[in-house]
Each structure stands twice: as structure tokens, then as C-alpha cells.
């Protein structure tokens, strides 16, 4: 299987022949184009910084669900992981902050490097890894016994961190999650009183409060209405200032709208594998692999 690896510069490897040879195959290409052009000459601020998966395999018991995935997530970028159900993209996401190992019988091989250090190295404090690599889940899951404010700061409490000014942090996180104006007058209301979309942005604010370097999002909008989805996507775009975002999505429009790079996963009954990764524009206009093309044009999946 032909696996392209992204280089740290964030530029995908494409040859000029491809651009000429193939017409744009997907209407999503134009959406994606706006996105990646603005990031076209992006240079990571800290060379060597970022998240990199090297030859990652994953198992549930004896079931091999993911094979040999290598992907680089440069800082300041959003990477979308797409593919049909059961292709291992969510499992891959969960190997990136060691949430994978919660499932009994879970196993993995390969390396995940965060700023050059393997997060699976023996002696690693898993809780510290999860502080650096935060996660937002499919279903909004604020802590219902806590107020909105307590929810945002819950990570500080859970990880027993010290913060000098909690009010500032609270406002900053809610601003970044695009929720501040809606909740600033009712920070002591319960998290459950918010709408689904607001709850999800609250979860994003909560994840940001512990200052992660990477934010993993597992289908964050699949339980939300289109309006809320757009708000979250705006939020994601703004987050790239400070965090690397990796988002799993079933919604190809979403991948096209928010991401700089897109990885396509596929399973042919065996373990899921990474078929192709390139800039989002490439994936939606001139994918190299015909299976990617079939998927993004909606011919299967």
C-alpha cells in the first residue's frame, strides 16, 4: 500500500503532472482550496515541535484493527482523518493520547512522538501526556454536577495544577472556545443547562484550560445541528494559533472546511490503514489513490 508521509513543512508531496492531468473531481475542492491557500506557505514556529505517529499498530485483544500508520501533525495545522466506519481512524486518534489503552485487551505497536519524545516510553506519566494532548469527544460530556465555570476549570482541579488567576483563565478559555459572550452572565449555571452545541464548546474550553499542545477531536459535531457545527468549525480554525488539531469526521464538507491536511483511512476487512494523506485541497481535488477518489466523491462509504 502506498503511504505518503507528510513532511514537517506542512507541504504535501504532489507532482505537477497530477495537477494538469486530473480535473477537480469533487465539488468540495473549491471549499478546501480557500483553506489550504491561506496556509500555503505555512512555516511551523518551532521546528521539530509537534506530534508524529510512526508505524502505529493497534489491537483489541487478538483483533488487529490498525496497521502501520505514520502521520505527522505539524504545529499550527488542522488535520482531518476521514474514512468509512470501522477503518480505525478513531482508534488511531485514541492512540495519540493513550486513551486507547482504557479498553481491556487493547494493545499497540509503534511510536507516538510528542516534541520528539515517545509518549509510550516506559516510565511515562500518562496523566501528563493527556494534559499535553487533550481530547474532545463525539457526545458533549460536561460534568453535570458542576457549574459552567467549574467545568472549564475542572482539568485544573483534576490534574492538581496551580493557576495564579482562575478568572482570567476562565475568560480566556471561554473566549477561545467562542462561548464567552453567551455564558459570561451565568457562569454559575449548571453545564447541563446549555444547548448541545454550547455544551460541546464548553468541552473545548475545558480541554483548553490545561493548555494542551494538541487537541484531538473525535467526531465533535456528529451530535450537533448545522448551526452549532459551523460555530465549532470557526472555533477550530481559531484554535490553530496555539494548538495542533486532529479531527476525526464522517462529514467530508467539514473536513474540507476546517482542515489543512486530510488523511484517508480504509479497511478491507483486515486492519485499517492509512491510504493517503495530503493537503486537504489535494485530497478533494486530485487524490492520488482511486479509493480516496471514490470515497470523497461519494461513490462508497
Amino acid at each position: 500500500m502506498d503511504i505518503l508521509k507528510l513532511k514537517g513543512s506542512g507541504q504535501a508531496q504532489t507532482t505537477s503532472e497530477d495537477k494538469v492531468a486530473k480535473p477537480e473531481i469533487s465539488s468540495l475542492a473549491s471549499v478546501a482550496a480557500d483553506r489550504s491557500e491561506s496556509k500555503g506557505d505555512f512555516v511551523p514556529r518551532r521546528p521539530g515541535a509537534g506530534l508524529e505517529a510512526k508505524g502505529v499498530h493497534a489491537w483489541f485483544g487478538k483483533h488487529h484493527v490498525l496497521a502501520n500508520v505514520s502521520l505527522n501533525f505539524p504545529s499550527g495545522t488542522v488535520t482531518a482523518l476521514i474514512g468509512p466506519s470501522g477503518c480505525g481512524k478513531s482508534t488511531f486518534l485514541r492512540t495519540l493520547n493513550r486513551m486507547h489503552e482504557f479498553i481491556p485487551g487493547a494493545g499497540m505497536a509503534g511510536e507516538v512522538l510528542l516534541d520528539g519524545t515517545d509518549i509510550y516510553k516506559s516510565g511515562t506519566d500518562v496523566t501528563k501526556i493527556r494534559l499535553k494532548v487533550g481530547m474532545v469527544f463525539q457526545k458533549p460530556n460536561p460534568f453535570p454536577s458542576m457549574t459552567i465555570g467549574e467545568n472549564v476549570l475542572s482539568g485544573i482541579k483534576l490534574a492538581q495544577l496551580k493557576v495564579s488567576n482562575k478568572d482570567d483563565l476562565l475568560e480566556e478559555c471561554l473566549q477561545r472556545a467562542g462561548l464567552w459572550n453567551e455564558v459570561k452572565d451565568r457562569l454559575s449555571a449548571h453545564g447541563g443547562s446549555l444547548s448541545g452545541g454550547q455544551q460541546q464548546r464548553l468541552c473545548i474550553a475545558r480541554a483548553l484550560a490545561v493548555k494542551p499542545e494538541v487537541l484531538l477531536m473525535d467526531e465533535p459535531c456528529s451530535a450537533l445541528d448545522p448551526g452549532s457545527t459551523l460555530r465549532i468549525e470557526e472555533t477550530i480554525r481559531q484554535l490553530t494559533e496555539s494548538v495542533i488539531v486532529v479531527i476525526v469526521t464522517h462529514n467530508m464538507q467539514q473536513a474540507a472546511r476546517v482542515s489543512d491536511f486530510t488523511g484517508f483511512f480504509l479497511s478491507d476487512g483486515g486492519p485499517g490503514q492509512l491510504v493517503e494523506v495530503a493537503s486537504t485541497k489535494e485530497i478533494f481535488s486530485r487524490p492520488k489513490d482511486e479509493r480516496t477518489e471514490a470515497y470523497v466523491t461519494g461513490r462508497f462509504g
Binding site: 493527556r130 494534559l131 460530556n141 460536561p142 475542572s154 483534576l158 468541552c203 475545558r206
Partner: peptide, 14 residues
């Protein structure tokens, strides 16, 4: 609910 437990762990909880 498992999602709440995972939310706590994902925030670096012991």
C-alpha cells in the same frame, strides 16, 4: 457514564 470517566481521564485526571 463512560464518556464522563473518559472526559476526566482526558483532562489528565488520576
Amino acid at each position: 457514564p463512560l464518556d464522563r470517566i473518559q472526559a476526566a481521564y482526558a483532562l489528565g485526571a488520576t
